[in-house]
Write a protein that binds this DNA or RNA. Structure first.
Length: 309
DNA sequence: GGTCCGTCCTGTGGGC
DNA sequence: TGCCCACAGGACGGAC
């Protein structure tokens, strides 16, 4: 499932393979994958045809490619959702079962001629969005030093790999909220790029329970969360991301291997590695949470008083 | 205005 | 073998 490290791996692939190239033609195979484009599939195709991709930028889980050739500053925005993939391939490569959009790119030596958007569960999508200046004049996202952000992603907070992210920013954002800690971490307006997997892993590393009320957090506890988020994301990025199945791959179709390093997520019934190291026995438990699951160690992530779920 | 829930989707795996 | 159901979960609209 693409969270920040997986999206960053894809961004780097786009940077290497499609930046500088012109969209010669495109086909939308499933209009649901461009449903966030206000003008519909035909307008999406007409607008994109003939534009040139200038950069590959990411903030949190949002990816965008600023374009030349449009009447106003705009970008092709991509969100991978649960199962979206952006793949660079030759035109004669077999069409994927869930191929949704196909972009034919101008030729470039040694580079495949197509960029494909493949998405099994259709939670992701592509759309065009106007670019607007960032409120602080700083870079809109990672990958290009441009003070611009798509209107559709303007509400997204700075992400965990942003140099400005740290204890100060996170503590202020968490203390403003009156909710549970994991709910807040999953809110892309608090901090972006965190999904279910890395929320659980970071909370395990920080030894905090997901239902801890955010407005009772002490600064050293927030610091543990901030450091855990940065550490987990950096290690996952170095491993090429987390791939449980074929739903997440990089632009060349390769999987990441961070799933081998997970301590809590998906490990229900197995021993907590930290407790085991301390000579104790505690089994990771799975709780239903927000229509999904949370994985915690009941011994080193104690349920707080006044838990907020 | 802040918080929270339902909905969108398809494939997989378990139970019967 | 075949059917049904639970589960996976990011983002957004709408209810409260």
């Amino acid at each position: 499932m693409p969270e920040l490290p997986e999206v960053e791996v894809v961004r780097r692939g786009l940077d290497a393979w499609v930046v500088g190239r012109t969209v010669r033609d495109l086909e939308v195979h499933d209009p649901r994958s461009v449903r966030r484009h206000a003008g519909g599939p035909a307008d999406f195709a007409d607008s994109l045809r003939g534009t040139t991709i200038r950069h590959a930028v990411r903030r949190g889980k949002f990816l965008w490619m600023p374009l030349d050739g449009l009447p106003e500053p705009a970008a092709l925005v991509a969100h991978l959702g649960m199962s979206g993939q952006l793949l660079v391939e030759e035109p004669d490569a077999p069409r994927e079962k869930h191929l949704k959009v196909r972009l034919e790119l101008s030729p470039a030596a040694g580079k495949p001629a197509e960029l494909r958007f493949v998405d099994q569960r259709i939670f992701g999508g592509l759309f065009l969005s106007r670019l607007r200046p960032t409120p602080d004049g700083g870079p809109g996202g990672h990958g290009a030093d441009l003070p611009l952000v798509p209107e559709a992603a303007a509400h997204i907070a700075r992400d965990v790999l942003d140099p400005a992210f740290g204890t100060d920013l996170l503590h202020a954002a968490l203390r403003r909220r009156r909710t549970g800690l994991k709910r807040a971490l999953l809110d892309q307006g608090v901090v972006s790029g965190v999904g279910n997997i890395y929320a659980d892993e970071s909370l395990w590393a920080a030894r905090l329970h997901y239902a801890r009320p955010t407005d009772t957090l002490r600064r050293p506890e927030t610091e543990r969360v901030a450091e855990a988020l940065k550490d987990v994301m950096a290690r996952a990025l170095a491993a090429g991301g987390t791939s449980f199945d074929s739903l997440y791959v990089n632009v060349n179709g390769a999987s990441g291997y961070f799933d081998r390093s997970l301590n809590a997520y998906g490990r229900a019934g197995r021993e907590c590695p930290r407790c085991t190291q301390a000579g104790l026995v505690s089994l990771i438990r799975r709780d239903p949470f927000m229509g999904r699951s949370s994985y915690t160690c009941p011994a080193c992530q104690r349920t707080p008083r006044n838990a907020r779920y």
